[in-house]
Design a protein around this nucleic acid. Sequence first.
DNA 1: CTTATTGCAAAAAATTTGCAGGTAA
DNA 2: TTACCTGCAAATTTTTTGCAATAAG
Lengths: 141, 141
Amino acid sequence: MTHHATQTLLELGYRMTPQRTLVWDVLRQSGEHLTAEQICARVQEQFPHVNMSTVYRTLELLVELNLVKETCLGPSRRYYEVEEEVPHHHLVCEHCGKIVHIHDEDLGNLPRLLEREQGFVAEELTVFGHCLDCGGDHAHP
Amino acid sequence: MTHHATQTLLELGYRMTPQRTLVWDVLRQSGEHLTAEQICARVQEQFPHVNMSTVYRTLELLVELNLVKETCLGPSRRYYEVEEEVPHHHLVCEHCGKIVHIHDEDLGNLPRLLEREQGFVAEELTVFGHCLDCGGDHAHP
DNA sequence: CTTATTGCAAAAAATTTGCAGGTAA
DNA sequence: TTACCTGCAAATTTTTTGCAATAAG
């Protein structure tokens, strides 16, 4: 586990365990959005007896400490990814399932507009739609 | 059930049943986002023995026929609302749980920007953040 | 009449919780 | 040594499915 996360946990009185290290490392290394189940599977490759409930509890903790982000990219399932310094947003293609990350500077005037017209501060944005060049397999994330 | 939905169903060879009528009416009358469970509860007020599975099957059908929209306003649960002529987008306040509808004209230059820069056609947008005037109860939709 | 649709019960999928024993600090 | 953390099993919660009976067209 990177110094960053270890330190945060220890500073706050939590313990550093192999399970927590592995969950964190899986998320760091993948760089993708993963479901709890996918995370568990990857963790178990290195540490076979790790339990789903531990994975869920670890994710809950990491989310609470703002080390991990829970995102909503479609119905039914939760996805997790490392919380990065620079916030990002998602484009979700509903045909091919591709997910693209964009950043604040790609949002044009929307954040200012929402704040001015709606009194709403945008933090994270998900755009459902379709990419112009997609095959159209209609898979979900 | 409005002529609109009834006709669509019948034209496609589906049957019109009291259960389907009620699910549709509940969605029309509420105008809100409702979970399958909420819909079922409201339907049962008028028709007590209607089953959850019927509600799920009806929603699945109405979504398939583009009469109802399934939206993703947070993890864990699916919400349903009537698919309107004019598409709309959601602002979700993560403090007070309030959901505001906005329309294409409130999006500024974002859709054009995404299409030009990312080759992505935005269809529906969800913005998570917080309203400036909210109490901050931290409830979910 | 015909077969799409329903209710019921049971299964599946996703997540949470209680508890006794294990282990980081 | 202490009490936080884990694994296990069982409970919840949300959604889906199989099947015989019912009702729409």
